[in-house]
Amino acid sequence: MTRFAILLGGDLTVTARLRAQIRGARVIAADSGMMHAATLGLMPELWVGDFDSAGSELTMQYRDVPRESFPAEKDATDGAIAVAEAIRRGATEIVLLGGLGGQTDHTAGLLGQSIEIARKGLACLLSSGIEEAWPVIPGSMEVALPPETRLSIIPFSDLEGLDLAGVKWPLLKRSVPLGSTLTLSNVALGPVRIAVSSGHGVAIAYPPLEFHV
């Protein structure tokens, strides 16, 4: 498995859990996402973007990192360009860091992008350090969550045949229409299994504060 961590420009809280999730990952920075490299103790193998928000200090500090520049007026975000490059370099798993909790349009777009990544057959995790998200597509997956983690599943389309196990309020073969709040604010008892027969959405988790150290 080849794991890539993509550094994005949003807020990031560095926790022991997050460090474990990116251990051994290859790294690509998207524009100002490079600001997280030093805190994480990582050296990206590539820096992509239009560099309109990277800052001259970062440019000097990481002047030896290979760069690919793109015009500011383009048809993809810097993060999407970084993901495409990770896939081109053989990624089988992508961790998107710093993309949650910021501007709603960018966050929603990134969640949608994670679904497309999953449809390509790649594992995908989004994390801000205190908030985590996974794409939900037809099939099943197990998510390692600490007990008492708040967990929600947000349908991006009608979900059919949803199974949810390892939670306080389990579900079996449930239909969850787009816009339903049935799957908000469940509680993990430990590892959680999520399965769905059709449709797509995202699972969002908030590990307890004691895991944010």
Rank of each mutant, 00 (worst) to 15 (best):
T2A: 11
T2E: 14
A5W: 02
I6E: 00
I6K: 01
I6P: 08
L7V: 00
L12D: 03
L12Y: 02
V14A: 09
V14N: 05
T15A: 04
A16Y: 02
R17L: 14
R19L: 15
A20I: 13
Q21I: 07
I22D: 05
R23D: 15
G24D: 11
G24E: 09
G24F: 10
A25K: 06
R26F: 07
V27N: 04
I28W: 02
A29I: 03
S32M: 01
G33V: 01
G33R: 01
T39L: 10
G41V: 09
L42A: 02
L42G: 04
M43F: 02
P44W: 00
E45V: 05
L46D: 01
G49F: 01
D52Q: 01
S53T: 06
S53I: 03
G55W: 02
S56E: 15
E57D: 14
L58R: 04
M60C: 05
D64E: 15
V65H: 07
V65K: 03
V65M: 08
P66V: 13
R67N: 01
R67E: 00
R67H: 01
E68A: 12
E68N: 03
S69I: 10
S69F: 06
P71Y: 10
K74D: 05
A76K: 14
A80Q: 15
A80T: 10
A84L: 09
E85S: 11
I87A: 13
I87T: 12
I87D: 04
G90L: 06
A91W: 03
T92H: 13
E93N: 08
V95N: 06
G99Q: 02
G99A: 13
H106W: 08
H106Q: 14
T107A: 07
A108G: 00
A108P: 00
G109Y: 08
L110V: 10
G112K: 04
S114Q: 10
S114H: 02
I115E: 03
E116C: 00
I117M: 06
A118V: 03
A118C: 07
A118I: 03
K120M: 13
G121K: 13
L122Y: 05
A123W: 03
C124N: 03
C124T: 04
C124L: 05
C124V: 07
L125M: 12
S128K: 02
E131M: 14
W134Y: 14
W134L: 11
P135R: 01
P135N: 06
V136R: 00
I137G: 08
V143E: 06
A144M: 13
P146D: 09
E148C: 15
R150T: 15
R150C: 12
R150W: 12
L151R: 08
S152Q: 04
S152I: 09
I153Y: 03
D158K: 07
E160M: 11
G161T: 11
G161M: 08
D163F: 06
D163G: 11
L164S: 10
L164N: 05
V167D: 12
V167W: 12
K168S: 15
P170F: 06
L172S: 15
K173S: 15
S175Y: 10
V176W: 07
G179A: 10
G179S: 11
G179Y: 07
T181M: 00
T183N: 04
T183S: 07
S185Q: 09
V187K: 09
V187Y: 11
V187A: 13
V192L: 11
R193N: 08
A195W: 08
A195Y: 06
S197G: 05
G201M: 07
G201T: 04
E210M: 08
E210Q: 12
H212T: 00
V213R: 09
V213Q: 08
